[in-house]
Write a protein that binds this DNA or RNA. Structure first.
Lengths: 142, 142
DNA sequence: CTCCTAACTTGTATTTTGCAAGTAACTATG
DNA sequence: CATAGTTACTTGCAAAATACAAGTTAGGAG
């Protein structure tokens, strides 16, 4: 009987930290939300190079935390990971993070058109990501 | 000769993770930005209970990352930690985090008046926190 | 049936975190 | 001005998280 450790506090910042206060969760949210990734192999192939055991552990925790769902694909070997509403609602935080990083990272990899869109149509950008994530979740797996 | 490890990628999400993708940094930003804390003992006394060695390490890293500055207090024993502009610019992300947590945490400790203000005057709330942080930085230490 | 692939698990080394004690610099007090 | 108390740390060690390499299992393709 493994039981989850008690939360350190009821502070909302702590709630967030207990969801994504680690070296990988935000990067996986990025993959799901911005890059349209859905499969184990896709997450493995991102440039930061997550190890397979860590990826498996993170996906398990994110599911337990209600950020993602597991769907069986038509190809019975594959499992599709999609964001829940709770996960999709991180879009605003994620785009704010991109804005902050673009401002303070001299070597930022934020594409110029994305930065421009952040300035021109911030709300539209967020809505686009959210609509896409909802659409992908509803779509049938490959 | 300790040299800092190379960044894993130039992705803006990764830039953010390398700044606050751990169990403590966001909580310290919260202390500095929302709770007006400035001193070592104040950070030690927060309810999550950070250990002294971790606190020292985090403060050192946050300074190296340009999120905070160290100021000597009149009392020569004390050191005042204040947010830089880069740190203060996290206010928007922090308030978005509060909003997300208040929405999804059934036991959230977000005070009702704060939630109300998030709805009624989101921009004003952020500006208030930022102005206060700037004012504290400019003020002379105790 | 055989080979291949996708999603994991297992084993072990390394790094980070957590807990309990210090310690050095400075201040307050008698 | 000696002593006690504070403040911001450091040090030593146990525990947990992370990283790297190598399996293993359930399908699917030919």
């Amino acid at each position: 009987m493994t039981m989850k450790p008690p939360r350190r506090s009821d502070c909302p910042t702590n709630f967030a930290v207990e969801h994504f206060g680690d070296r990988w969760t935000l990067l996986l949210i990025r993959d799901l939300l911005f890059h349209g990734k859905s499969y184990y192999q896709e997450f493995l192939s991102d440039e930061e190079g997550i190890s397979t055991n860590i990826l498996a552990a993170r996906l398990k925790k994110m599911e337990a935390d209600g950020l993602i769902l597991r769907q069986k694909a038509r190809d019975g070997r594959r499992i599709r990971y999609v964001l829940t509403d709770k996960g999709i609602d991180l879009a605003r935080i994620m785009v704010e993070i991109n804005r902050w990083s673009a401002k303070y990272d001299p070597d930022t990899g934020v594409p110029a058109d994305h930065s421009q869109k952040i300035k021109d149509d911030f709300e539209g950008l967020i809505t686009d990501y959210q609509r896409n994530a909802v659409a992908r979740r509803a779509a049938s797996a490959d």
